[in-house]
Design a protein around this nucleic acid. Sequence first.
DNA 1: TCCATACTATACCGACCGGTATATTTTGTC
DNA 2: GACAAAATATACCGGTCGGTATAGTATGGA
Lengths: 188, 188
Amino acid sequence: MDNRQRLLDCALDLFSRYGYDAVSVREVVEYAGVTKPTLYHYFDSKRGLLDALLKREAGRLLTEVLVAARYQGDLVATLESIARAYFAFAQAHPACYRMQLGMYFSAPESEANQAIRPFTNQQREILEGVFIQAAEDQGNLRTRHARYAAGLLGTINAMIGLHFNDGLVLGEEPIYLTVHQFMYGIFS
Amino acid sequence: MDNRQRLLDCALDLFSRYGYDAVSVREVVEYAGVTKPTLYHYFDSKRGLLDALLKREAGRLLTEVLVAARYQGDLVATLESIARAYFAFAQAHPACYRMQLGMYFSAPESEANQAIRPFTNQQREILEGVFIQAAEDQGNLRTRHARYAAGLLGTINAMIGLHFNDGLVLGEEPIYLTVHQFMYGIFS
DNA sequence: TCCATACTATACCGACCGGTATATTTTGTC
DNA sequence: GACAAAATATACCGGTCGGTATAGTATGGA
């Protein structure tokens, strides 16, 4: 009965499958079983719908990553915690993660990319913060936190891609392998 | 004077900046200084324009990666050669690589994703082939070639992302660091 | 019971979409 | 220079786009 939530659910499903630009507001409201004025009652525009959707969906991921990324002196354990959070989220909410991934890599001047940028920036800061804090304990990785954060997230997303496309189950083993390869290399 | 090439150039520029779906054929032809029938003389449709563009642009990347990925008994050297090829291409043709990256991560039922899938599949086969061949020499990494190929490409793309967004210069040092971290871990 | 507010539907807007029928110009060949 | 073919322009098509003016209905408080 909550048409606002229903509209967000339907928008998520359609955006994740076809992309924000390729989906019209007509398709969203028909899929949701309502009419356009209902959508425009809750959201000012198509872009407003997207912003509200990201606030709900990307916000969830962000808080889970934020919790998982609290550094407690053990870099390996922290990175495993982060990988676990990403993998769990991607498995629990595949459409949501697909959409965010697609928007992250979408064209830099597209609405979708601009809408998701605040959220990806926060993710980036969280991950870099882990390596900056770890650098206080272990030397060596100073000034490289940006590369490490980007590299880790790139590897995590690569594994999530294998999960989406090839059905790789993202249990404890991939978490262990991902982090240990990152820390100790391919032969670890 | 070659309007066909000019149309492809303009389409690449616009697609890479705004995304395939957000760019209209009107915008392409106006940017190119021609009219629509000229575009439809060379390409059957907007999708045909995209296919021709990918054949030209993604084909270039593919052949360069194919050459770089010839395994010659030294896995580290081969991976460095691959990273060098990707980095060089991304730096020499940023709009082209941006567009391909965006389409690779675009929604699975979008035209853009379907159009680029053959090319990404070939890249994947090339990279997996390297690890499969290397597995004949070194044990250990058998049956994990898919994860290694995905992980390596994920890391490479992460570095290219830092190049695009933060101006990281992709010279020999990032090549060395990327591959050695992949092979031997973060402290190598 | 009255009223304000939140919500939803019908019907419509101008602009733009991808694509084309037709006509004209350029170009290479003999 | 005649002529066919390739290339380009004008003008237009039906359909869909994001968005809205207007009106009606449901709902909860006084």
